[in-house]
Design a binder for these strands. Sequence first.
DNA 1: CCTGCTTACCTAGATGTTCTAAGGAAGTCG
DNA 2: CGACTTCCTTAGAACATCTAGGTAAGCAGG
Lengths: 109, 109
Amino acid sequence: MAKKEDLLQGTLDMLVLRVLSRGELHGWGITLKLEQLSKSALQVDEGSLYPALYRMEEKGWIEAEWKVTENNRRAKYYTLTRAGRKQLETATEGWDRMSAIIALVMESA
Amino acid sequence: MAKKEDLLQGTLDMLVLRVLSRGELHGWGITLKLEQLSKSALQVDEGSLYPALYRMEEKGWIEAEWKVTENNRRAKYYTLTRAGRKQLETATEGWDRMSAIIALVMESA
DNA sequence: CCTGCTTACCTAGATGTTCTAAGGAAGTCG
DNA sequence: CGACTTCCTTAGAACATCTAGGTAAGCAGG
């Protein structure tokens, strides 16, 4: 059974913000989008995703609105706020910086 | 006050294994080495490092031996085991794969 | 001596994310 | 009606890291 990777702590928020920066999506849709974009390498656990969404909503990075999907089901659509856009930038920079540092150490150690 | 970054969960073990793969070091020395190699970007917390060393020792990735340093102080020197070398490989591959996935999503989202 | 600085190790408890595991509700299709 | 899919929710465990202390021993200066 191909064991899917666990996420690196702290990266889920960034990934979610990134997909939302392309337009609103509901939780289930975020899951599908991430799976699709990662070529099935990521299967985000709902038990990780929903708490992450609530955290980010509390922090004011995203906003939720109940709507009806194409499939005629009710779903909570999330959109990025201005603060969320800012946070996406910050997180992306942080990620780039940190992965550069790790690459540096791993290559030169 | 320049706030130093928190480590990404799971990367500390890999970084420590990497520096140890170049030769034995004691805990304090690992701290200095990582700081030096990362150009001061990483200041590994002792409260993170020592528990990490114990975990890895239990897992059989590293071995400890008390010795005396150049400074005439006693210190626990750690060396990689064969399993540790294997684990370093595995962790490196995992890191490479995961960071590639994240790059993929971040760029294409 | 005695004080302060550096090296070096140790550990308890808090924090925060993620995973495990479960359940519920509502629409669709045969 | 029953099975399947979509979609959300939440409690608790697991786990790494950080915070924040502490101990001890050598060395250098006054």
